Simulated scan of single mutants.
Amino acid sequence: MFGLGWLEVGALAVIALLVFGPEKLPQAAAQAGKTLRNLRRMANNARDDLQAGLGPEFSNFDPADLNPKNFVRKHLIDDIDDDWNRKSASEPAMAPTAPEEPTTPQLGYGEIPPYDSEAT
């Protein structure tokens, strides 16, 4: 429940009991439930108004896609996965090849590499 374990929920219940007392705790819980229900209804109404105002050309618009995590996953990572799957499906499987020899000469023990002034 909301990423909380039973120990955290129990601690919150004990704290609520100490803060509100046994007489006012049921009323506070009922008020919190009403407030949560009103907030959820307002969010749903705002989403419905937004979708109605955008018109039919945005019928597949989902406000959750505006979350940066969802946006990156949908537009970047999924596109990369699609490209990878399309590429691997269209290319035949190739046999593994031996690694190529390095084109740069290997330095011997104690040799100093050449200095490149443009590299810094």
Rank of each mutant, 00 (worst) to 15 (best):
E101A: 08
G33N: 09
D83S: 13
R37N: 13
F20I: 01
T97D: 06
H75V: 10
Q27F: 14
R41L: 14
L50D: 00
A98M: 05
A93Y: 07
A13K: 05
L25P: 00
R47F: 06
P22A: 15
K24P: 08
R40S: 11
N60R: 11
A29R: 05
G33R: 12
A89Q: 01
A64C: 02
E8M: 03
H75D: 07
A52F: 08
A89H: 01
Q27I: 10
N38M: 10
W84Q: 12
H75P: 04
K24W: 13
A16K: 03
R73K: 13
A32E: 02
L66E: 03
E101I: 13
V9E: 05
S88L: 15
K87Y: 15
S88V: 11
P92D: 08
D62P: 02
F20K: 07
L18Y: 06
D78Q: 04
L17S: 09
G21Y: 07
A29Q: 06
L66A: 05
A32T: 01
N44E: 13
A46W: 06
K24L: 15
N70F: 04
Q27A: 14
S90M: 12
L25V: 00
A28W: 09
F58Y: 03
N45E: 06
Q27S: 15
N60I: 04
S59H: 06
H75E: 11
P99L: 00
P92L: 14
K69S: 06
L7F: 12
P56G: 03
E23W: 15
P26D: 06
S88Q: 12
M94Q: 13
A52V: 01
D78A: 05
K24T: 14
G53R: 04
R73D: 15
T103E: 08
E100C: 08
A98L: 10
A46F: 09
N45T: 10
G21R: 02
H75W: 06
E57Y: 03
A28E: 07
L50T: 05
P99A: 03
E57G: 08
P99Q: 00
K69H: 10
A93I: 14
A30K: 00
D83M: 13
N38T: 11
L25R: 01
P99T: 01
G55H: 00
E100F: 12
